[in-house]
Nucleic acid binder design. Structure first.
Lengths: 217, 217
DNA sequence: TGCCGTCTGTGAGTTTGTCACCGAGCCAGA
DNA sequence: TCTGGCTCGGTGACAAACTCACAGACGGCA
């Protein structure tokens, strides 16, 4: 059984297409902290993530950053293909957040399959759609949402099932595209209310219910 | 000579593909102010704009709005296709800003051509790429740029070659995703410096050089 | 132990967003 | 022509967010 069954949207491909996909592409391991794509970089593979996560973020001239979205296992890093074609400059970069295992589909194979298979095209387009809705979400949050609400949401999301989050104020600020001081002050307020506790380099969620209530506003 | 030559990226298609495109799609006229797509709307055509412009904007629950980008003549409204596929909700809508003439390509024809023609796929992907870079730009501006700079940029862009812009403070606020009061204050400041003059429903650019200097910061 | 780089805290000032309200211009109908 | 209602713009007070400058705390390492 090959990896192609692990991708929703690829599992339904005809067997011969899946075989072609598997034989003509290469599984690779990427260590944590690797820049998978960046402005000016020449990527000629479409990456499908088998495990790990890739953080995609934008960097401004002034050095401030904002996280746009994460590519999770079972998803494709389709934005790279878009960015290749893009004429103008952009400033998004993808960095592996954990060690990753990924399938690299060469451009030629990508083109062939896009021509051959309706289902594959469907897969590609729905990958685009997901990323675009992610970007819409970022815009919505930046333009219309208060920082405290966004911080609560992000803390819950990043923590997942765990109670403690190993991260710095600066990293959280990057998540939201805001300044470190803002995060520090918000966290202090959260702590004052007994919602979280802080240590150097970590935040512990104490009162999830309260955070969820704020996040839902 | 058909309309397909007017689209960069389509003009290079083989003649038989262009013919198929032209015979199997329909040219339509759309009056100003029409909602071309919106959340929950079922679009089954890909629109190519022959003339006019479509404004794409996002609306928040609270009623505030932000302009994401404009589709100009010679471009395709490819985001509709993405949004169809998108599982989650999104809140972008497209509104004709002028009377428009557009080619509607039915989904079936779109699929056929995407299968048949490398060049057509290239066209579609580069349309996506353009929109995505537009969204990156919006995010960059929202997260990292001062409002006065963005306003100066937008005034110059919207005015084009003309000196006078027929628009309201509220509409300018929507352009930037900010509040009407903020635009009012910035314009008052611009006026105080002799850069613009204002009348009810219009702004006249007096000192373009100064605005350009600010816009370039 | 002492040094250094990273992480966090904080105050002051600026910019931006929110809220509430008012007045001026414009238009249509009496 | 008057008048009421609507849109547009102006304003003050306040809250939220960002910037800047700097200081102290912590941890790893020589």
């Amino acid at each position: 059984m090959g990896w192609s069954e692990r991708f929703e949207g690829l599992a339904s491909l005809p067997k011969e297409i899946r075989d072609e996909l598997e034989t003509r592409s290469q599984v690779m391991d990427v260590p944590e902290g690797t820049t998978v794509f960046a402005p000016g970089m020449h990527a000629d593979n479409l990456l499908l993530l088998l495990s790990g996560t890739v953080r995609v973020q934008q960097v401004s001239e002034s050095g401030r950053e904002i996280v746009l979205y994460r590519v999770e296992a079972g998803e494709s890093c389709v934005m790279t293909t878009a960015c290749l074609i893009a004429h103008e400059d952009y400033a998004a970069e993808g960095i592996t957040e954990t060690a990753c295992r990924a399938v690299a589909i060469p451009r030629k194979v990508f083109d062939d399959l896009a021509a051959k298979s309706d289902a594959f095209r469907q897969f590609v387009f729905s990958s685009y759609a997901r990323r675009i809705t992610d970007l819409f979400g970022v815009i919505e949050a930046l333009a219309f949402q208060r920082v405290d609400i966004r911080l609560a949401q992000r803390l819950l999301k990043l923590a997942g099932a765990a109670d403690t989050l190993d991260t710095t104020h600066q990293k959280l600020a990057t998540e939201l595209g805001t300044a470190r001081e803002v995060v520090s002050r918000q966290l202090r307020e959260f702590q004052r209310r007994g919602w979280v506790e802080q240590n150097r380099g970590s935040v512990t969620l104490i009162d999830r219910a309260a955070l969820e209530a704020l996040a839902a506003e």
